[in-house]
């Protein structure tokens, strides 16, 4: 057996540190504008809706709906070679933000657009955690 190559691990930077710190604490942290009340993703200094510099980090519900997905068959990175085919999905969060992530805890054949999902947190390594989604309980 050759040594398995790991999946790539994101390297948090100054702007994204609150997101990754939240994921370590099993919370989905996103930016929320205190001026216009909209949530946004990915990360910015200014709100993309009202352009005011009034974004604050807030825990999102982590709940959403499957908007669309693909089953990806190409092993583009050796860390995924043992995992193809795997899903990549877009999740419409209840806060109005669409995230791309993987859906865990369900066979690819059972993925359905419109299914309710909730965030779950996994570590690809190096102590970094990332949100994924799984079918919502209840």
């Amino acid at each position: 057996m050759s040594e398995a190559v790991s999946k790539p691990v994101p390297i948090p930077d100054a702007l994204s540190e609150p997101f990754f710190a939240g994921a370590r604490d099993r919370r989905l942290m996103l930016q929320h504008c205190t001026s216009c009340g909209t949530w946004s993703f990915p990360l910015r200094e200014r709100c993309p809706t009202c352009m005011k510099p009034t974004l604050e980090w807030r825990a999102a519900s982590g709940r959403g709906t499957l908007y669309t997905f693909t089953i990806f068959h190409q092993a583009m990175h050796p860390g995924f070679a043992a995992h193809v085919p795997y899903n990549v999905a877009q999740i419409d969060l209840d806060e109005g933000v669409r995230m791309t992530a993987n859906v865990a805890g369900v066979d690819n054949a059972d993925l359905r657009i419109g299914m309710r999902l909730e965030a779950v947190f996994e570590s690809p390594g190096d102590g970094v955690f990332i949100p994924k989604f799984q079918p919502a309980a209840g």
């Binding site: 994101p10 390297i11 930077d13 693909t70 990175h77 995924f80 795997y86 990549v88 993987n102």
Partner: peptide, 26 residues
């Protein structure tokens, strides 16, 4: 891999193929 951009690789979302596949499925 730096910052939020690193999430794409972490999810294995490489290139345009998965993205257009998701559009097509929608």
């Amino acid at each position: 891999l730096g910052g939020m951009v690193g999430l794409r690789a972490a999810y294995g979302n490489f290139g345009a193929n998965p993205e257009y596949a998701m559009a097509a499925r929608r």
